[in-house]
Amino acid sequence: MRSGPAAVLAAAALALLPATASARTAYPDPLPLTGQQIIHDPTVHQLPNGRYVAYSTGGILGARLSTDLTHWTDAGNAFTTPPAWWYDYNSTADPWAPDLTYRDGRYWLYYAVSSWGTNRSAIGVATSPTGLPGTWTDHGPAFTSEKTDTWNAIDPAVIRAGGRLWLAFGSYWSGIRMTELDPATGKALADAPVHHLATRPDAPYAVEGPSILHHGGYYYLFASYDACCAGVNSTYKIRVGRSKSVTGPYTDSTGTPMLNGGGDLLLSGHGRYAGPGGESTFRTRGKTWLAYHYYDATDGGTPKLGLNQLRWRAGRPVVK
C-alpha cells in the first residue's frame, strides 16, 4: 500500500541503500495544513468546481475534501461497501494506495487489494462521473499478480503517453514495473509485456509506490524507498529519475539507471516529518505539487498529508 511485505522488512537489509545521487541535503517543510490531516498514500485531484479531493489507504479508500489545499475535511469513503471480489485477495477487504485520474469524460480510480507479505495481488479499477466519494462504480480487477510472478501488482499509477495508456505498479519483489492498458476498459491489454522500470541490487528490493509525471520532454519516475508503516521509525524516502520514454530507462542526475539502484534523493525525513513517501503528483493553477504522507513525530507517529510544490532545476525536480 505503498507498503512492502512485512516478512521482508528486515532492518539490516533495509540499511543496504546503494550509493545514488542526492538532490539536496536539507528539505523544506510541507505546506501548513488544518482540519483532517490524517492520510496515507494520498492521491489528489482538483475537481471542476474548484474543490480538491484526496483519496487514500484506510477505510474503504478514505476521502478528504478541501477548497484551498490547506484546510481538509473528512468526506467518508470512495465506496459504501467493499466489492465482493476484494475478499479473494484480502480477508478484510482492505484496499491500498489509490490513484485518481480523469479522462474521456470520467474519473478513474485505481487501487490495490492484497495481503501483507504476499504478491498474490490485484489492482482494481472504478469510474465516477464526478470523482466524489459514494459515486464510484467498480469494474473489477484491471491487473493481477500471482505468487509465481516476479512482481507485485499493487501501488498503481496511470499515465497517458504517446497516445497510449500505461499502468506503473510495484512493491518489493523486483521493484517497479509497467504494462499497457486498454483505454476503453481501463484494464490491462491481453498479453501486453511487463516492462521493468526500477529496482535495487539487494534483497528485499525495497522500492515501491511509483508515480510518473511528464514535464519538459521527459517522464519522471518517483518512487518510495526503504520501510513504510512503522510510525516515527519509518525510513521511507522519495527518489526520482527521468527518461525520454515512458517505459524507460530511467536514470538519475549521475547517469545511474534506476534499474541499478539509481535515483536522486528528492525528499527524506527531517525534524518532525518522519518517513515521507506514498507519493503522487498533481497540477493545479499552473503549479505542480507533490502529495505524500509522513509520520508526525510530535503526534505519536500519526500519518499525515504532506504537500510541497515541485520546482525544476537543471531539468530535475526539487521540492519547495
Results as ranks from 00 to 15, higher is better:
245 S>R: 06
264 D>H: 05
258 M>T: 10
262 G>H: 05
231 G>C: 05
233 N>T: 12
264 D>G: 14
265 L>Y: 07
267 L>G: 03
221 L>C: 05
256 T>Q: 15
279 E>I: 08
281 T>D: 02
253 S>R: 09
250 Y>Q: 09
287 K>S: 14
269 G>P: 12
221 L>G: 05
281 T>Y: 00
245 S>W: 00
233 N>E: 14
242 R>Q: 13
248 G>V: 11
230 A>T: 08
230 A>E: 14
244 K>R: 15
263 G>K: 12
241 G>C: 01
286 G>L: 06
229 C>Q: 07
255 G>Y: 10
243 S>L: 10
275 G>R: 04
280 S>A: 14
235 T>S: 14
236 Y>Q: 03
236 Y>C: 13
269 G>M: 04
240 V>M: 07
235 T>Q: 02
279 E>L: 15
262 G>R: 02
228 C>Q: 07
278 G>I: 01
268 S>C: 11
252 D>V: 04
231 G>N: 15
274 A>V: 08
229 C>E: 02
221 L>D: 06
228 C>Y: 09
251 T>R: 01
261 G>P: 10
272 R>N: 11
240 V>P: 03
238 I>S: 06
283 R>E: 05
233 N>Y: 10
261 G>T: 08
228 C>M: 08
227 A>Y: 10
229 C>H: 07
259 L>F: 02
265 L>G: 07
283 R>C: 07
222 F>D: 03
273 Y>G: 06
228 C>H: 04
239 R>Y: 00
229 C>I: 05
225 Y>S: 11
285 R>D: 15
260 N>G: 09
242 R>A: 08
265 L>A: 05
286 G>S: 06
